[in-house]
């Protein structure tokens, strides 16, 4: 029996977002969208998290932080990149300090498009992440290296 799907705790990190996507992520917690009905909690602590939600592109400063946080999340874990910036670097792509999307630093499992991504699609993305999470758990149980 898997409890993972029923209790995904997220960690929200702003890599270098314009805050547009961040607002939308937080909007998911409001009564209108209420992600807690799926058991989703915003933890703010990598050691408690299952889903790593990143907004904004990766810059030279944030890349090491993203890497560290990713390492500190216990497996199984999935990464959800929210917004175009997180996918490719978006409008900031050509900036001198931007490395690009989240996948330049850590493996990404789900991309949520949009600028800013709408709360509905963020929720959709996270629900999609849940089945990936479940697959990873099974893989981990079998003894394959968790990623």
């Amino acid at each position: 029996m898997s409890y993972l799907k029923k209790s995904p705790w997220i960690l929200h990190y702003d890599a270098s977002s314009c805050n547009g996507c961040d607002i939308e992520v937080l909007a998911c917690l409001t009564p209108l969208y209420d992600v807690e009905r799926f058991g989703i909690i915003n933890t703010g602590n990598p050691k408690h998290a299952d889903i790593f939600v990143i907004t904004g592109g990766i810059n030279e400063q944030s890349s090491v932080v993203v890497k560290n946080i990713y390492d500190q999340i216990p497996s199984p874990k999935v990464v959800v990149a929210v917004g175009i910036c997180a996918a490719t670097g978006g409008v900031f792509r050509e900036c001198y300090n931007i490395k690009g999307g989240v996948n330049t630093t850590i493996p990404v499992d789900v991309y949520v498009p949009g600028c800013a991504a709408r709360p509905e699609s963020i929720i959709d993305g996270i629900v999609a992440a849940l089945s990936i999470l479940e697959e990873k758990r099974k893989a981990m149980k079998k003894g394959e290296t968790p990623l």
Binding site: P46, K47, V64, I69, D71, Q72
Partner: peptide, 12 residues
């Protein structure tokens, strides 16, 4: 157990 560093906001 996998040993991880203590949490300092993602800093090393």
């Amino acid at each position: 157990y996998r040993k991880v560093p203590r949490y300092v906001c993602g800093r090393e």
